[in-house]
Structure formats: structure tokens, C-alpha cells
């Protein structure tokens, strides 16, 4: 009888600890968001997001972070677009053209998963050395290309996860109409997976806009708006990173404001992608 009680007590204790573990994770997220908003919201104002830094981003006490906001949006949009142009065909190809080569496709997926694990600093270092090799200076373009490489495996696998759920009956039906595999890919599978592809795009965009280590080497930093692909560009992560280490409070405030904006962008992305994966399903067969 005693043993039974002991067992019950043991289970109870562990259940409490396990419950606490889950709670701690939720609390950690709340704490992160709270501390960023608490510190940063007072600094967010219209002039903060609509002005360029004045007197240099590291010393000037005036001005805002428009340069970083626009720079990040340009950079992330460009990289997402490039990664999409490269990534979508790969996802479709391995599911349609390589439909019968199951083992090969699993090998490819395995490789892509491994690549997903490569840290962004490695892409950054690589991008930097390639840039030097071609005699390029740090620029929006160099950063965009580096980030493209970094998000490519993420993009491919995210789309692939959606495409691989399409029933092969649809492939058979489309091919029976005399479609080529490429037509099947772009005209039918693409539509069928449109909501999932949107989510994959958002996910990749979020990675692209948030990563600092890959752009640290390659985009440089500037007080100006991005006007050309060949010029250095400010980005939000670096706006936070550089300005946070400043001794001047007004400059730090710009870092905190940037942190709020970046966090809000990420939150919005994750909300939208939750919604899109539910909506846009009306043309989808189940």
C-alpha cells in the first residue's frame, strides 16, 4: 500500500514540475515581449519612424530610424523574392518530377535540413569573402544575396512540407489531361498550395528581416536612405546592435525603438501566417 502511495506522490510531483516547465516557457516569451515593449514603446513616436538619424547614428541625439526600417524592408523583400525564384522550383521539382525517386528525394530533404542548421554568421563570412573577391564594397546587393543563400533552405523546406501533402491523384488527373510536368507544377500545384506558399514566404521574410550576423559583414551601415543596390544600407538588427552600445541615452532610445518595430513585425508575420494557413483554402481539395 505504501508503495502505491509513493508512486502516486512521485507522479504528482513530476506532473507539477512538468507543468511548471511549460509555464516557464510561456512566461519567458511574455517576459521577452514585455521587456522589449516596456523599454522601447516610450521611444516610439512618429518622428522616430519618419526621420533619418541626425548627426551620425552613433553620436547624434536627434532623428529617427527610417533608414533602418526602409533598408530592412528592401533587403528582406529582395532576398525573399530571390529565394522564392530559386526555392519554389526546387520544391515543385522534387515533388513532381522526382515523384518516383522517393529515396533520392528523402536524401535531398535530409541535406536541406542539415543546411537549415548552418549558422548565419557562416553565410555572412562567406558572403564577405566573395564580396572582397569580386572587389565589391558592402552594399544592399551584397547583403541581399547573402541573406538569400541563408533563407534558401528554409524557403525550400517550408514550401516542400506543403507541396508533399498534395494527393498523387491530382498529379495523375492533371497528367492525364496531357499536361507536362512543369505545367502541372506551376498551374496546378502552385494554386493548390498557395496558402502554404504564402506562409513560407512570410516565414522566410521574417528570417531575412531579423538576422544580423549575415548582414553585419555585407550590407554595412549608413545614415542615409537606401537609394541604390550598390550602396551600403542600414538595417533594423544592426540599428539595434550598433546603437545599443552607445553611451548616449538618445541613441540607445533609437535602438530600443528599433527593437520594438522589429518585434512587432515578427509578431504580425506570425499572426498573419496563422490566419493565411486557415484562409485561402476554398480552392483546395481535401
Amino acid at each position: 500500500m505504501n508503495i502505491l502511495k509513493l508512486r502516486k506522490a512521485e507522479e504528482l510531483i513530476f506532473r507539477i514540475i512538468m507543468f511548471l516547465a511549460t509555464t516557464v516557457i510561456i512566461l519567458a516569451l511574455c517576459m521577452i515581449i514585455y521587456s522589449i515593449l516596456h523599454k522601447g514603446l516610450p521611444s516610439v513616436s512618429w518622428s522616430m519612424i519618419s526621420q533619418l538619424p541626425k548627426g551620425g547614428f552613433y553620436f547624434g541625439k536627434e532623428g529617427g530610424i527610417l533608414n533602418a526600417i526602409l533598408g530592412s524592408v528592401y533587403l528582406a523583400s529582395g532576398a525573399t523574392l530571390l529565394a522564392f525564384v530559386l526555392g519554389l522550383p526546387v520544391s515543385l521539382y522534387i515533388n513532381i518530377h522526382l515523384h518516383k525517386r522517393k529515396k533520392l528525394v528523402n536524401g535531398i530533404r535530409f541535406m536541406l535540413d542539415v543546411m537549415w542548421g548552418i549558422p548565419s554568421i557562416v553565410y555572412g563570412a562567406f558572403g564577405f569573402s566573395v564580396m572582397l573577391f569580386f572587389g565589391m564594397r558592402s552594399s544592399l546587393l551584397a547583403g541581399m544575396l547573402t541573406v538569400t543563400l541563408f533563407i534558401l533552405p528554409i524557403m525550400i523546406r517550408a514550401i516542400d512540407e506543403i507541396v508533399k501533402t498534395v494527393p498523387s491523384g491530382l498529379l495523375e488527373a492533371t497528367l492525364s489531361l496531357g499536361s507536362t510536368k512543369s505545367e502541372t507544377a506551376y498551374r496546378v500545384y502552385f494554386r493548390q498550395c498557395i496558402s502554404g506558399i504564402t506562409t513560407a514566404l512570410l516565414l522566410s521574410f521574417g528570417r531575412a528581416i531579423g538576422d544580423a550576423a549575415s548582414v553585419l559583414f555585407t550590407t554595412g551601415y549608413t545614415d542615409n536612405l537606401p537609394t541604390s543596390l550598390a550602396k551600403p544600407t542600414a538595417t533594423l538588427p544592426l540599428a539595434i546592435f550598433f546603437q545599443l552600445s552607445s553611451p548616449i541615452e538618445e541613441v540607445k532610445a533609437r535602438a530600443y525603438a528599433s527593437a520594438v518595430i522589429l518585434t512587432v513585425i515578427i509578431l504580425i508575420i506570425s499572426i498573419i501566417s496563422r490566419i493565411t494557413s486557415r484562409k485561402y483554402q476554398k480552392n483546395k481539395i481535401k
Partner: peptide, 21 residues
């Protein structure tokens, strides 16, 4: 092969309409 397949219409066990109108 697409020319051959076009000569045969396939109707499968359950309908697979294309994701269009």
C-alpha cells in the same frame, strides 16, 4: 507522353478537381 495521355481521359476513384473555379 503528353500526346498519348491526352488521348485518354482518366476518371479516378474520387474526384480530383483542379484548384480553380
Amino acid at each position: 507522353i503528353t500526346t498519348i495521355r491526352k488521348r485518354m481521359g482518366l476518371l479516378s476513384q474520387r474526384p480530383y478537381p483542379l484548384p480553380m473555379n
